[in-house]
Design a protein around this nucleic acid. Structure first.
Lengths: 255, 255
DNA sequence: GAACATTGTATCAATATGATACAATGAAGT
DNA sequence: ACTTCATTGTATCATATTGATACAATGTTC
């Protein structure tokens, strides 16, 4: 036996030839940059998107939530499925002796990894300031990396990340989801920065505000933002009732 | 042994607890109605969306193409993945004695069906007139059913169909895909009918044409449609080069 | 109290959209 | 041969939306 904290990850491997997992591309905006979370089993091992196998009695979405919580400690994240990756050879993990040594685990050689792993891709949005730092076993190997500076990730994880951003950008034009990257109360200039950073292009301020407010789903609060050295902007809040009503009336969101 | 033609469907079942399949919602427009293909193992058994398990060395998309060809005989269909269905109990098939009798098959009782089956959903578009009637084993059980008249299907197949239509409608506003339901050469009024039937609402003729032509991806041919008892409309053809150029320039398609 | 940055909002030209109109045209009917 | 008819291509115009610019308002900082 070993007391490696990584042992738990390898104890419950089923001897199956097939597995279905999820991968989450968790976006956040901080320091005026679009970043995603990447992780790894160990600093010396390759970088990965958060992910894992779907358990027996779990939907894919539940698995994505569970894994995001296990690895990062975050809960109640906005999640959206965007594509399932099915290349037969996309996942080809083998535990080599070097890795076993790094992780300090006992690996029973009669257990084999699945020959094929499908991955259901989710993109997730979270406000950086709200991240709870109570993550799971791999917490210390988590890294927020600017999307533009993404290193080589394992398997097809770079492809998954790229397609996640495409899906996110496409969805930005169809549904108001950008507010998920902000605190509950936010200003229009803050929302504009989110759009600009995700789309990677400047938007005209007055026209952006007019558009956002025309949807009638952001409710303006009495308060204004405090502590700014200029005119204080209004605070807004996403209003789910207004949103549901707008969707029912067939609204089309568009920039 | 038996000479039932259905035997082949059950001979290669692996003794696995998990499987990943695809389901295809194949749309067509005929008789001014939006229809999809449903099938069944036998007229007395429940109705299904075309689908099947993904083979070992096959991508999901290849499986969708293969299955559409096997079941319906159609090739070169426009396919788009839209969602993966992962409810743990969504697929709960058991071969009961009645079914075995109807199909006249030998079913080895030590073989079990997978306890859980994931399904990657695709919607597909095809021009009704181009369907080759050289389909596979279940050809005679295929039915084109008007979407509005859909009967109860097995498992979660009604949900899959519903979400497929939502995905198709959403995509109509984002990419020009409606032409896949028409022959290579088509007129603007024909294209308009496709949109109207899918969206289930009338569109204004002159504005529709203006919009479609503004994208600059349909090339007008010299010929006009023959044999109509009124002014002959121009024929158009989808131009892939123009389309790729437009996408590269960041065009947004919209109605 | 002046300088400064940024905000809410107004304005106007350019563009896009919705609604309507009308001449053109080919087959069918007389 | 002529009329009728349905449908097409295209024009037009009122309205709505968008892009660009301007300006007064308002906190903090100096």
């Amino acid at each position: 036996m070993t007391d490696s904290k990584y042992q738990i990850l390898f104890n419950n491997l089923e001897d199956a030839s097939l597995a279905v997992g999820v991968n989450c591309v968790l976006f956040t905006v901080t320091e005026n940059k679009l970043k995603i979370l990447i992780t790894s089993l160990h600093p010396k091992l390759e970088k990965l998107l958060p992910g894992g196998v779907i358990l027996n009695n779990e939907t894919a979405e539940a698995a994505a939530h569970r894994i995001l919580k296990e690895i990062t400690g975050v809960e109640d994240v906005f999640l959206q499925q965007f594509k399932t990756f099915s290349e037969p050879k996309r996942f080809n993990y083998q535990l080599d002796p070097e890795t076993i040594k790094i992780l300090n685990i006992n690996f029973p050689y009669h257990v084999k990894f699945p020959e094929r792993v499908f991955s259901i891709g989710y993109f997730a949005l979270i406000n950086f300031d709200q991240i709870l730092r109570t993550g799971g076993v791999m917490r210390e190997n988590n890294l927020w990396i600017e999307f533009k500076q993404l290193p080589k990730l394992a398997y097809d994880n770079n492809l998954i990340a790229t397609e996640a951003l495409e899906a996110l950008r496409k969805e930005l034009f169809i549904k108001p989801i950008g507010y998920n990257l902000l605190p509950e109360k936010f200003t229009m200039p803050e929302l504009q920065r989110i759009y600009e950073i995700i789309l990677d292009k400047p938007l005209t301020r007055s026209n952006f505000q007019r558009k956002m407010l025309s949807w009638g789903i952001y409710e303006r609060l009495e308060e204004r933002k405090e502590g700014v050295s200029h005119k204080r902007p209004f605070l807004y809040r996403f209003n789910k009732e207004k949103y549901d009503r707008a969707v029912k009336n067939g609204i089309s969101f568009w920039i």
